[in-house]
């Protein structure tokens, strides 16, 4: 796996997060019933950053939850190594709320599908929206994002790698080729 190009640096990531935060507030006409839910692993720090921005903009806190989708994956019987299951930590009721799912990369759509199922098992949100830092195309399911940091045309042979300070010690989005 070798690095081909850096497509976002720390400043670009910061600006994208800021813009998405504004869009979330605008699209929902405020944040009264809005709750952010980050998909493990890198959706979680992104959701926290968006929540901090929203608080700056609106002057009110926007609660953040953490969703682990491992038990909802559709490939568990075909992969050799079982992925490690982590806790889902959603400290609020999703009932009748506008839930914004947050993830780092939107690719096949299978993670988003699993996240939708996992979320709906927790209650009945009024609406679910999807926010991603990078949309790289190649959907295998009829799923689209409501808020996108950057659209990146890729080939299937490439890998989009998102590094975030909270997890990886650096903010960077890069394309790697096999």
């Amino acid at each position: 796996m070798k690095a081909k190009a850096e497509i976002m640096d720390a400043d670009q990531i910061r600006r994208a997060v800021t813009r998405i935060a504004h869009e979330i507030v605008e699209a929902n006409k405020g944040i009264e019933d809005v709750r952010l839910v980050g998909i493990r692993t890198r959706g979680v720090p992104l959701a926290r950053r968006m929540a901090a921005k929203i608080e700056e903009i609106e002057g009110a806190a926007c609660p953040v939850g953490v969703l682990d989708i491992t038990l909802y994956r559709d490939d568990l019987t075909t992969i050799a190594q079982q992925p490690v299951v982590h806790k889902t930590e959603i400290p609020f009721s999703v009932e009748d709320k506008v839930i914004v799912l947050v993830d780092d990369v939107l690719y096949t759509g299978r993670t988003a599908r699993a996240a939708l199922d996992a979320l709906i098992d927790l209650g009945r949100p009024r609406r679910i929206q999807l926010a991603v830092l990078v949309d790289r195309g190649h959907r295998e399911l009829p799923i689209r994002a409501d808020f996108v940091g950057k659209n990146v045309p890729t080939s299937r042979e490439e890998v989009v790698r998102v590094d975030l300070v909270e997890v990886d010690g650096v903010d960077r989005v890069s394309i790697l080729s096999r």
Partner: peptide
Amino acid sequence: DTAEACKQIFDRPVKKFPTLRGK
């Protein structure tokens, strides 16, 4: 660790994970 995550099912309205469908 895995059991800790599974134990959360007791707090949920829908006590069902789709994980082992077909098994």
